[in-house]
Design a protein around this nucleic acid. Structure first.
Lengths: 231, 231
DNA sequence: TCGCCTCAAAGATATGACGTATTCAAGTGA
DNA sequence: TCACTTGAATACGTCATATCTTTGAGGCGA
């Protein structure tokens, strides 16, 4: 799910450069400068800049140029922005923000899922909880990560709330990020695994409060661990 | 904070048309068709389409045209998308989604704000709680709305979490929306007002749990009221 | 010193031309 | 009859260029 063509490739260069602060807030670029720097035409530069403008990362004004807006204005919920920030020097701040967001959203999503999940959802959730347990026992971190992402995404989707559902990819990016950067134990903690099964069981049998509590324990645990690692 | 120029005006026409379903999912538009329909040049159409592509609302493919993507793929956190959906036929669904999001996020934000708010934040929060009370007593709905939006935005910002902070505008849009569409009582409920003061007091004196609980009562109340009105 | 005016810089828009991927269908052969 | 190949039509992608519009800055005069 990526912008294709030359504007896309230009974004892949500009986005990380902006997110990492290599091009700092307040910097002013000229369209012509970008044309030369990346060897593309005006059209391509303008379309890429328009997209960045849509994310509120830059503003283009006549006679001035393309100004990099303060980070506080950026669309921090945009998946592309999140990915760029996770890849760059903002990673700790981004992970912390996302951690708090998870603590807020995922328990609520679990509670809703216990009420709204379809039968298929419940079946798949049980199945994922089992696969998760197996992968954890085998200390197969890659496989574990895949199921973990699928598990959390499914809970978010099963909540029946489209906005929660959209955070599935974001949570996936967080989980991938903390595995890639070795911010989690090499062996998933048995306690956390048990909690995942508990969430699945509670959602399957419609016990809303229990699902919420178990999920809260999972995500607050993850956040605490994160804060410890980043401190 | 709006895209300016002709592409912006084109978006103001296309966005609502897409959000309302007037142009349905799966519909295929041709660039040339849009040029004629809106009397603008290719450049303008292409830039507007690029922005919509950035929001994952459309995809442009050669030999096919500009395809409207399923709503499940849209960037539902994009402020523009939210505004368009609130203005169109998706309003009930959008308000419900946002209601649940508020229930998840705002209590967590209040809890964090009790810990992280600056002295200025705390002062302003107290002040807003007072103004809120006055405006409610005078049954001055417009003024009340302004302070209410400022109050919730401030709590979100004071949480110190940039992602929560960004939801300030969104929550503002929800509050504005439900006032405009007469989805709230003509006179703010005294109980709700007292809860706002309670949130402010708790945050000012650093009582995290209390702030969270009071805020939860506010937003769950709002959600229940909403569900009642929309049923 | 202040205010107005002019000029130029840089983006905004329009347009023409060409490139290129993709689809659809006609044609070919087994 | 069916499957495969091939070619042409189509609509977006990219580039280049020209003109328009806005606006910041410097100069000019009172």
């Amino acid at each position: 799910m990526e912008i294709q063509g030359l504007p896309g490739r230009l974004l892949d260069e500009l986005g990380p450069a902006l997110a990492s602060g290599e091009i700092p807030e307040g910097a002013v670029l000229r369209g012509e400068e970008l044309e030369e720097r990346f060897g593309v035409s005006r059209t391509v530069v303008r379309e890429a800049v328009r997209i960045l403008e849509g994310m509120r990362m830059v503003a283009s004004r006549r006679r001035v140029g393309i100004t990099v807006l303060p980070k506080s204005l950026w669309d921090v919920f945009d998946p592309m922005v999140i990915r760029w920030r996770l890849a760059g020097s903002d990673r700790p701040a981004q992970l912390r923000s996302l951690g708090s967001l998870r603590v807020a959203v995922e328990p609520a999503a679990a509670a809703l899922a216990a009420v709204h999940a379809t039968d298929d959802d419940r079946r798949e959730l049980s199945s994922l909880a089992v696969e998760l347990t197996v992968a954890a026992r085998d200390a197969d971190l890659t496989t574990f990560l895949g199921y973990d992402i699928a598990f959390h995404a499914l809970v978010l989707r099963a909540s029946g709330n489209e906005m929660f559902a959209h955070l599935g990819d974001t949570v996936g990016a967080v989980l991938t990020g903390r595995t890639e950067y070795h911010l989690m134990p090499h062996q998933p903690e048995p306690y956390a695994i048990r909690l995942h099964r508990e969430v699945a069981d509670a959602i399957c049998s419609g016990r809303s409060d229990e699902a919420e509590q178990a999920m809260r324990t999972i995500v607050t645990g993850a956040l605490e661990e994160l804060n410890q690692q980043l401190s």
